[in-house]
C-alpha cells in the first residue's frame, strides 16, 4: 500500500490540524525554519500543539498564529498590548506585531528537542522562556560571541 514518505505543506495540513485542535485534540508539528533556534531546530525537533481554550497568552509563551497573508508562524510572545500580541522567534531580535488574539491558532504545550521531551518543568524550557527572552536585544552579539569562542573562527562574520 505504498511506503514512500510524503511531505505535506504546512498550509495543507493546518486546516485539518486547526479543526482537531479546536475539538480539544493535541497534535504534533515538526519545526520548520530557523527562527526558533537555538531552542528548536528544523529537522530535529517538534512541538505538541494544544488549544489555548480562550485564555490569553502570557509573555514567554510559544504560540502558533496566522499572519494576514495566511502564513502560519510559531514564535514566542514578547509582550501584550491592549489584547494584542507581539512575537519574536528565539533566533530573532525583530519583534512582530500587533497580532490579534483571534489570529492565535494554538499554544505550544511541550517540545521534543533532540528526541527528549521538554516541558515547562525543564531547565531548557525555563531558560529560553525567561533568560533568553530577557536578553532579546543582545542575542545577536551573544550568538556571534559563542560561535567565535566555540568554533574559534571568524569566517562567518559579517554575512
Amino acid at each position: 500500500m505504498g511506503n514512500q514518505a510524503k511531505v505535506f505543506d504546512t498550509k495543507e495540513i493546518m486546516p485539518v490540524y486547526r479543526e482537531l485542535i479546536k475539538n480539544g485534540k493535541e497534535v504534533s508539528l515538526p519545526i520548520t525554519g530557523h527562527s526558533m533556534e537555538p531552542f528548536l531546530k528544523e529537522g530535529r525537533d517538534r512541538v505538541i500543539l494544544t488549544d489555548c481554550k480562550g485564555a490569553f497568552l502570557k509573555r514567554g509563551d510559544i504560540a502558533l498564529f496566522m499572519r494576514e497573508d495566511g502564513k502560519y508562524i510559531m514564535h514566542r510572545v514578547v509582550k501584550k498590548e491592549g489584547g494584542n500580541y507581539f512575537f519574536a522567534g528565539d533566533e530573532q531580535t525583530f519583534i512582530e506585531g500587533p497580532i490579534k488574539h483571534s489570529c492565535v491558532v494554538a499554544l505550544v504545550k511541550e517540545a521534543y528537542r533532540k528526541g527528549k521531551r521538554i516541558t515547562c518543568k525543564n531547565f531548557t524550557w525555563w531558560f529560553f522562556k525567561y533568560i533568553w527572552l530577557l536578553i532579546l536585544p543582545m542575542r545577536r552579539g551573544i550568538l556571534k560571541f559563542l560561535n567565535r569562542t566555540i568554533y574559534g573562527s571568524c569566517e562567518n562574520e559579517e554575512g
Partner: peptide
C-alpha cells in the same frame, strides 16, 4: 484520526499518540 489533506487520506496521531508518534 483519519482525515483528508490535499486529496490524500492521512492518519493524524493526536493526544498521547502525538507524543510517541512523529509524523
Amino acid at each position: 484520526i483519519l482525515r483528508e489533506i490535499a486529496g490524500e487520506y492521512v492518519l493524524v496521531p493526536t493526544g498521547s499518540a502525538s507524543k510517541v508518534f512523529d509524523g
